[in-house]
């Protein structure tokens, strides 16, 4: 049911608004992710990286181009799509319903897709993300930020997808909690052969989690590269080099040499 887990995007274009007010948020973006691969989209705010992810998750329905997941056309709204690709959002304080228990949050996707055996599946999912059964009947306000993000990941796993779409999954968390969540995602990917598409502004997180990455600026992909090349400090484009330098900490000379790529 969950398909091979490949993702392809061709000439994706997204506009918000009309006429002179229109914002061209994504401009002709193309990339593909092989089954089981982990691919990063990195960029600054407004670069269009999250919009690409939202198109793939079916959350943005007004776009041009081609996008497929496991060979299924994302535009078709095929009911199988949510069972193949699931999304984890940035802010676990906002993405969980405050008046639903963990149990209800996790069981809902099963009910929608008519999958039985909910009780056992909920317990399994909680175990998979490192939360014991003791968390099952808690409300989000009884959980820390890291525990909430684990619940959000468990929810994304309920339909046993082959693709995880991750939108800044650790940027709202403390660094020690970030390490726990990144380790969890690593382990889930290894155990389940998941394809991951990770959006982040943090180059170090992308380098840690991904095999390849694409750098976005103003709605377009500036360059696509292997993480190994990033580690060697070998980006081709000046924009990526600047982003890399700025990510390495404060340096007076680097700050003075910054140029605008708007």
């Amino acid at each position: 049911m969950s398909g091979d887990g490949s993702v392809t995007v061709r000439d994706l274009s997204v506009r918000f608004g009309r006429g002179s007010q229109a914002v061209h948020a994504v401009r002709g973006v193309s990339f593909s992710v092989a089954p089981g691969e982990s691919f990063g989209l990195v960029g600054e705010s407004g670069s269009g990286k999250s919009t690409v992810l939202r198109v793939l998750a079916g959350l943005n329905q007004d776009w041009q181009g081609t996008a497929t997941i496991s060979g299924l056309d994302v535009a078709s709204g095929d009911r199988r799509l949510p069972r193949i690709a699931q999304m984890v959002f940035q802010d676990p304080y906002a993405s969980l319903h405050p008046r639903h228990t963990v149990d209800r949050t996790l069981a809902e996707p099963l009910a929608i897709h008519g999958i039985g055996d909910a009780s056992r599946r909920v317990e399994q999912a909680l175990m998979a993300v490192g939360l014991g059964p003791g968390f099952r009947f808690r409300y989000p306000n009884q959980l820390s930020g890291g525990q909430r993000q684990r619940v959000a990941i468990a929810r994304a796993l309920m339909l046993e997808p082959s693709v995880l779409l991750l939108d800044e999954p650790t940027s709202a968390l403390d660094v020690s909690v970030q390490a726990e969540i990144l380790n969890l995602l690593h382990r889930l990917r290894r155990e389940r052969g998941l394809t991951m598409l990770l959006v982040s502004h943090n180059l170090a997180v992308i380098a840690h989690m991904c095999d390849r990455l694409a750098v976005m600026n103003r709605g377009a992909i500036v360059e696509e590269m292997a993480v190994a090349a990033l580690r060697r400090g070998e980006p081709r484009e000046a924009y990526t080099r600047q982003l890399l330098l700025a990510s390495l900490g404060y340096d007076r000379a680097v700050a003075a040499s910054m140029v605008s790529y708007d």
Binding site: L203, A204, M209
Partner: peptide, 20 residues
């Protein structure tokens, strides 16, 4: 030390980050 070690870095290839 725990905080410093739990940070992912661009130039390292640790699969697992030490947690605190």
């Amino acid at each position: 030390r725990g905080l410093l070690q739990s940070l992912p870095r661009i130039d390292d290839e640790r699969a697992e980050l030490p947690t605190l």
